[in-house]
Structure formats: structure tokens, C-alpha cells
């Protein structure tokens, strides 16, 4: 059993798996230092451990559960919003590295373009998400909560109506489409 775990450790890409432990633990320490709530560090460390175990066994679901737990702990910690942004970015980065660790099992040769592409993609996603959140948060602070929810609700209803209309149109076309006669089907050449 121990041999199996050691083998699994190396096949999962030990370096990547280690990063998925170190990064959340560092964030946990950082969040705990900024929080006045009790037991936050314990929750966040447990979440970090779950993410690490998920990386070791190659389970994205386990790591995802750890990320949800980490998010819950951060929410309970009542930390400033900038720290929450940093936590969100680090959790996404952790999951990306977890995915890489799955690709790197049994020590393959990795092209540099993989690192470059992954880094670039992660940077773009985090930058875009930060900008998006900044916009949402700015609007949310200017107006009431209902003023955010109502436009989104109206937009959602409109989007659903458009989908329904498109579906109805497509279905209608299928029903009214001219069908080929039996003689045409029997003699496709003519």
C-alpha cells in the first residue's frame, strides 16, 4: 500500500502537487493574519490538505471540494475584499496546477510552450476576472443590491425568451419543410 502511494505521488507530478499544497497554505496563513475570527486557520489548512490530496490521487472533484471549503473559510473570515480577490485568483491557479500535475504523471517530456501557454492563459483569466469583479463591486457599492439583481433578472428573462423564440422558429421550420415525395425517394437520379 505504501508503495502504491509513493508510486502515485511521483506519477502525479510531485512538484505540481507540492505547489497545490504550498500555495493554499500560504494563502491560509495570509487570510488568518488579516482575520479576527477564530478557527479560520484550521478550516483553511484542512481545505489546503484536501486540495493536496486531490492532486495526489488525481481527483479534480476532491480538489474542487477543497477549493469550495477554502472559499467558505475565507467568506467566514470576513477579510477585506482585496484579499478575497487574491484568494480567488490563487484558488483558480491552484486548480490549474492540479490539472497540470495530472498531465505530468509518469514524468513526460514537457514542451516549454505548455508552461508559456498555461501561464499566459492564467494571467489573462485572472486579469479579466479582476477587472470584471472590480466593475461589479463598484456598481454594487453605488446602488442597492436590488438594482443589480433586477437588471440581471430582466436580462435573464429576455435571454430565455429569445432562446424559446429561436427554438420555436426552428421547430416550425422543420414542421413546415417541404418533404420529398415517395417517387423522388425511389428514383433519386431523376
Amino acid at each position: 500500500m505504501l508503495t502504491w502511494h509513493i508510486d502515485r505521488f511521483f506519477r502525479a507530478g510531485p512538484l505540481c502537487a507540492l505547489v497545490t499544497l504550498v500555495l493554499p497554505m500560504a494563502m491560509a496563513a495570509f487570510v488568518n493574519s488579516q482575520s479576527s475570527e477564530d478557527n479560520i486557520l484550521g478550516i483553511l489548512l484542512v481545505a489546503s490538505g484536501v486540495i493536496f490530496i486531490g492532486s495526489l490521487i488525481g481527483s479534480a472533484l476532491a480538489s474542487g471540494f477543497g477549493a469550495v471549503l477554502f472559499s467558505l473559510g475565507t467568506t467566514v473570515a470576513e477579510v477585506p475584499v482585496l484579499i478575497m480577490v487574491a484568494v480567488g485568483i490563487s484558488l483558480y491557479t491552484t486548480l490549474v496546477i492540479h490539472d497540470l500535475s495530472g498531465s505530468f504523471h509518469r514524468g513526460p517530456r514537457v514542451a516549454r510552450a505548455i508552461w508559456r501557454n498555461t501561464s499566459l492563459t492564467t494571467l489573462v483569466v485572472t486579469a479579466t476576472s479582476t477587472a470584471s469583479f472590480a466593475l461589479v463591486y463598484f456598481v454594487a457599492n453605488l446602488t442597492t443590491w436590488q438594482s443589480i439583481v433586477v437588471p440581471f433578472g430582466v436580462a435573464a428573462i429576455g435571454f430565455a425568451a429569445k432562446l424559446a423564440a429561436d427554438s420555436h422558429q426552428t421547430f416550425g421550420r422543420q414542421l413546415t419543410a417541404k418533404r420529398r415525395s415517395q417517387s423522388d425517394a425511389d428514383n433519386p437520379v431523376s
Binding site: 480577490v85 484558488l91 443590491w145
Partner: peptide
């Protein structure tokens, strides 16, 4: 994660929770 964050943000009226889930949504 994105769904959990959105539901939490709407249910508890805490838009700051979106900070945790925005990267996943994007």
C-alpha cells in the same frame, strides 16, 4: 465553484463573495 459562489452572493446579499468565484466564471 462558480455556481456555489453566485448562489451564496445572491442568497446572503454579499457581492464580495463574487471575488472568490469570478476567475472560475471567466
Amino acid at each position: 465553484i462558480a455556481l456555489a459562489g453566485l448562489v451564496t452572493a445572491i442568497a446572503f446579499r454579499r457581492p464580495d463573495v463574487l471575488a472568490l468565484t469570478t476567475p472560475f466564471v471567466v
